[in-house]
Design a protein around this nucleic acid. Sequence first.
DNA 1: CCTCCACTGGAAGATCGGGAAG
DNA 2: CTTCCCGATCTTCCAGTGGAGG
Length: 334
Amino acid sequence: MIQDARVLQSEFVPGDIVRRDAELNAITRALNPITRGESGETTCLFGPTGVGKTCTAKYIFERLRERVIDLNTNYINCWEAPTKFKILHQVLDGVHKTVDIHRQSTPTDVLTDRLHDYDGPPYIVILDEVDQLHDTRTLYDLSRMRELTMILIANREEELFARLDDRVSSRLKTATCIDFDPYSTTALVAILQDRVQWGLEEGAITTSQLETIAETAAGDARVAIGILRGAARQAMQDGGTEITDELIQDTVSHAKAEIKRQTLDRLTEDQRVLFEIVSENGDIAPSDLYDAYQNRVDEPKTNRMVRNYLSKMCQYNLIVANGENRGRTYRTKV
DNA sequence: CCTCCACTGGAAGATCGGGAAG
DNA sequence: CTTCCCGATCTTCCAGTGGAGG
């Protein structure tokens, strides 16, 4: 039943991007100087998860590599490497400038110097989830590297720019910013159909089933593709040749649980306890939250550290803080 | 209006952990 | 092995904010 499992992975970069023509054109225009061997404009892609930001950026990568012979590219996820050292290290790694830097104890100055010494062909770096960056001055160091073109990907424009210091934001003033809106149900169906065409045998799934998937995914293509993949995999294990409605229902709830588990896996033990407490209590005041946390953990971190955790989890979209100062309460998102 | 105080988040310094040099 | 150095993490301290209650 499954013809090509690769296209059922949400990370798969399709040969054609469905329904993102305007965005593609804008990015292509910003990066056009690269085809002449110059560096392109810094480009920022904003939008919620699963709207095709990463996919579109990677697609552009591929197209540019076809047209430009001398080009270095690199994809960095700032969630996985949020510190200045790791980011700079990975950027240098993309142009093989790190052979002699193994130790963590290399001062970041050494890395910055080496960035500035780079005089190779144009170099494009995608910084995904850039709002997870610990030290936004890292962006300043990167923006001073002349041959480097940055594609920055983040959830919300305001939140990213609010965290930048003046030097960085003035550098990014001229950046091309592109907002990605959530997909409509019909757009999601079109995306799924594209994948189904390459990935599944004919007749394996109906259009109305794709619509069901698209509706539950609520604009998030990653979720939609995840459900499709799960249903196809299960149908194959069951030895069927088509996907039934019940199977879709099962997979939908399964997929939701899976996504939640993955986000929670990215948290530390202390953060997970905090998340549990918040989700058990609905709306909870900061002091009550900290008391509960102290009771539940053997070696509680300080109140200040807990506040760091909470603001981090707000950034991760796991919880929301309502109100300022005294009136603040926390609750889980969604 | 004024004072109190729970809460936030910046800054600075302490501590941890890992890799390298001696 | 010890010592040193780095980034990362955590604590300590504190100024600023704004709602509650006199």
